[in-house]
Amino acid sequence: MKKLVLIFLIFVSAATQAQNPTLFEEANEAYTNDDFDTAIAKYEEILENGKTSVATYYNLGNAHYKLNNVAPSIYYYEKALQLDPTDEDVQNNIEFARSMTIDDIPVIEETGFEKRINQFLSTFSYNTWAYFSIALSVIFAVLFIFYYFSRKPLIKRALFGFAIFIFLLGGISVFFAFHQQEIQFNNQFAIIFTEEAAIKNEPSQRADTAFNLHEGTKAKVLEDYQGWVKLELSNGTQGWTENNNLKRL
């Protein structure tokens, strides 16, 4: 009798889930049916519920791209890359979105050892580096246990040497995780969301306009001051704009 009740409950649960698809599935279905506004609303509801993922940000970027919403599409692609810098689909699509922007700002490339280090660190997010360090810590603990209980001197030396090597790798992974986290949190970026944003020489409406930026342009946030934000472009140019002209990543 209990087995029959259990089978019935499982069947009811499965039927309920089939009749009530998840919000993500509903958003995907709306996107497939070219109902991009509905898809955007449902993806945003997922984010409001605190459920962030590369797929959600990526699909949101795609939906906005289909509607030619330049700034939001770039913004959500950038959010996806923050979670997974190695995602090739996101990397490809953000280039398409960037081609829709008006501003063509050259990038000053890093050179030398610092460039190679930053490129290597950016291969993974700080969360991934942290997972590496945890996995290496577990491997180290297992190797130490085998070393402790081993009775053969040759095996003990081999296990000890390998354990020390894994320990050092774990320490390096921890360092990389903290360093990548520091880069991400100290280097704050924003996307221009207004059609055109005046960039001033000083944080004042009376200040001269140095130049204008347009929607979708990415800039580094340097400073906040009474509703104004100091930005730095990829070519090193700096200026002030009102906070409501942008959305921070």
Rank of each mutant, 00 (worst) to 15 (best):
L67I: 03
F149I: 15
Y147V: 02
A71M: 10
A80S: 10
I139L: 05
A130Y: 10
V142P: 00
S150N: 08
Y75K: 11
V107P: 04
L67W: 06
P153S: 14
A71V: 12
F120H: 11
L136T: 01
N92Q: 13
D103N: 09
P85S: 02
T86A: 13
N127L: 15
L136N: 07
G112P: 10
T86C: 07
K152V: 10
L83F: 05
P153T: 15
E88S: 08
I105W: 04
F124T: 01
L143D: 00
K152T: 09
Q91V: 12
S99K: 11
L136P: 01
T86V: 03
N118T: 05
P85M: 03
D89F: 12
L81R: 09
L136E: 01
G112A: 11
Y77K: 01
Y131M: 09
F140T: 05
A135F: 06
Y147E: 10
L121F: 11
F113L: 14
P153N: 15
I155Y: 00
I145N: 01
F120A: 14
L81P: 01
Y75T: 02
I155K: 00
N92D: 12
V138Q: 01
P106E: 09
S99Y: 08
T101A: 01
Y148W: 15
F146E: 00
E95F: 15
S150H: 04
E110Y: 05
L121R: 01
Q91K: 14
I94V: 13
F149H: 13
I94F: 08
F113C: 09
I134S: 10
T111C: 04
I134Q: 09
R116W: 14
A80V: 04
V90K: 04
T128W: 09
L83T: 10
Y76H: 11
K156D: 02
F96M: 08
G112F: 14
T111F: 04
N127M: 14
I108W: 02
Q91P: 13
R98I: 01
E95N: 12
E78I: 03
Y148I: 13
T123N: 11
W129T: 01
Y76V: 09
P106V: 03
T101V: 04
L67V: 04
Y75R: 13
S125H: 02
